[in-house]
């Protein structure tokens, strides 16, 4: 036959090993999160932040047991001692050990930041997710409500709530502080999640899931939220310092945590009295730690944002 003559025998040789290897993918494929982590590791500033956060976290748990003083223990023979080998950060005007009190305060500040961010995350993701998946009308109403709540000045509400829920002189409890901060704090998260949902619910994998009979809730939880985790994580990282800052400000005004309990903000407030009489360390040490926490979370958040940004991918 004529067609046969076009093919010679040389054209059908056995493939060598080399030819087979050409088809292989040489490098292992890099999964999304390991890749993010790899890029984050290259960012020195962000890693510094992460290390500071981990160290502060560890110290806020064990720090109050290290040098053997109690955070409430007063000793009138040892007031306003400057930092020395026994009292590493000195003592305050009631003779309480400031090393122990600082870590106690750091524990409170971190706790408030993390809990407030967790609540913002839960409410924000739920509200934004529901608004994004709902019909247009429901979405519009939900977003209008969120906008109104958001334009209510945040700190004013926190201050008002702390007035309402605290009896005179006893200050504001941890619970009320967190509640007050979450009241308006969830809105940015909700707006972010809603935007992502609106985008991702048109994606092929959502369509595929829907055509297989998945419900809206399933698609939201199993497909859309996991795919928008990156921006959410950045938002959470930047919410924590905001909450810590808000608490520090409140406590500095004397409206937050009350002694003998302490947060970094209330320690700075108490230490302020020592400033004119030469005890600057009483305000500078808590101030330094507040600044360190703020710095660490902010640079980590920025680093995460860069690491997650596909445009910066090399």
């Amino acid at each position: 036959m004529k067609a046969d003559s076009q093919f010679s025998k040389e054209m059908f040789q056995k493939a060598t090993q080399e030819d087979r290897n050409a088809e292989k993918i040489r490098r292992p494929s890099i999964k999304y999160w390991p890749d993010v982590w790899r890029r984050l590791k290259q960012n020195k500033l962000a890693m510094t932040g992460l290390i500071i956060i981990v160290l502060m976290g560890i110290m806020s748990v064990i720090g109050i047991y290290i040098n053997g003083f109690d955070y409430r223990q007063q000793d009138y023979s040892l007031i306003n001692i400057h930092p020395n080998s026994i009292h590493w950060f000195g003592t305050d005007d009631l003779g309480r050990d400031l090393f122990t009190r600082t870590w106690f305060g750091a524990r409170y500040s971190l706790l408030i930041g993390i809990l407030a961010a967790a609540i913002d995350f839960l409410i924000g993701v739920l509200y934004g997710g529901i608004a994004g998946m709902a019909t247009r009308k429901v979405d519009a109403i939900m977003m209008r409500i969120a906008e109104v709540i958001y334009s209510i000045p945040y700190m004013l509400i926190v201050i008002l709530l702390s007035v309402v829920f605290s009896t005179q002189g006893s200050g504001t409890s941890l619970f009320v502080l967190i509640l007050a901060m979450s009241l308006t704090g969830w809105v940015p998260m909700a707006i972010l999640v809603r935007g992502q949902v609106l985008q991702l619910k048109e994606s092929e994998y959502s369509l595929a899931s829907e055509s297989l009979g998945a419900t809206k809730g399933w698609i939201l939880l199993k497909h859309i939220i996991p795919n928008t985790l990156g921006p959410i994580l950045v938002n959470v990282t930047l919410t924590i310092p905001r909450a810590i800052f808000a608490e520090a400000t409140l406590s500095f005004l004397g409206l937050g945590i009350q002694p003998p309990k302490a947060s970094l903000g209330s320690l700075a407030n108490e230490g302020l009295a020592g400033l004119p009489v030469g005890n600057a360390y009483q305000v500078l040490i808590p101030a330094l730690f507040i600044s360190l926490i703020m710095f660490a979370f902010n640079v980590l958040g920025d680093g995460l944002r860069d690491a997650l940004d596909p445009r910066l991918r090399k």
Partner: peptide
């Protein structure tokens, strides 16, 4: 970075 890390009440005190 200093501006973002140091709250205004600390900056004022310093």
């Amino acid at each position: 970075i200093i501006g973002i890390s140091v709250p205004s009440f600390i900056m004022g005190t310093i």
